[in-house]
């Protein structure tokens, strides 16, 4: 099993619904977020392009954050989801600096926090909160080992890219382009 997510940059409107849905679902304190939106404009007026991406932890196959964690709090869970065990985390922040995607933040309760792919929902057969709420239905989630999962199907059909592939982290968040 290998969980992954694909985000369609052609459909995403950058509304941040995914951000606020994650915040409420996971009780992320105001002022912090596990996912966020990036907008990049290319070109000059009037020849313009705009790429909008909803970003989060890439649940990398080769995660520097897991490797550098001194306590084992950061670890791989079912389906390759990268998680932090809150009571094992000493809040040293090594993982925060090791992540090329800036996907982690120090939770005010003293541990590090990040996207969990909403594993508590996924285990119950639901989709991650961001995927479920998105008004443009631009996010696809599922098991890459299952050819019939939403994410497998869309990756087969569409061109995609990952972010900073040169970092060698083998990210599992795909952007449809």
């Amino acid at each position: 099993m290998r969980y992954a997510m694909a985000v369609d940059t052609k459909k995403c409107v950058g509304c941040s619904d995914c951000v606020v849905a994650c915040q409420t679902e996971n009780n992320v304190p105001i002022g912090y977020c596990r996912d966020w939106v990036v907008e990049i404009t290319h070109g000059t007026y009037p020849q313009l392009e705009l790429e909008i991406r909803s970003e989060r932890c890439n649940h990398c196959d080769n995660s520097p954050c897991v490797r550098c964690c001194p306590t084992g709090a950061s670890h791989y869970s079912d389906g390759g989801i990268v998680l932090v065990t809150e009571d094992k985390c000493i809040g040293c922040g090594a993982c925060i600096s090791s992540c090329p995607y800036d996907a982690r933040y120090p939770h005010p309760d003293g541990h590090v926090d990040k996207c969990t792919f909403c594993i508590h929902r996924v285990q119950k057969g639901q989709k991650p909160a961001c995927v479920e709420v998105c008004p443009t239905k631009c996010m696809y989630f599922g098991d890459l080992d299952d050819p019939n999962s939403d994410v497998s199907k869309v990756l087969k059909k569409r061109k995609f890219k990952t972010l900073i592939p040169e970092a060698g982290t083998k990210p599992q968040l795909y952007f449809l382009i």
């Binding site: 509304c15 619904d17 951000v19 606020v20 849905a21 008004p135």
Partner: peptide, 8 residues
């Protein structure tokens, strides 16, 4: 699906 304003 609510929009961000509805979710928030």
């Amino acid at each position: 699906r609510l929009c961000p304003r509805g979710t928030g």
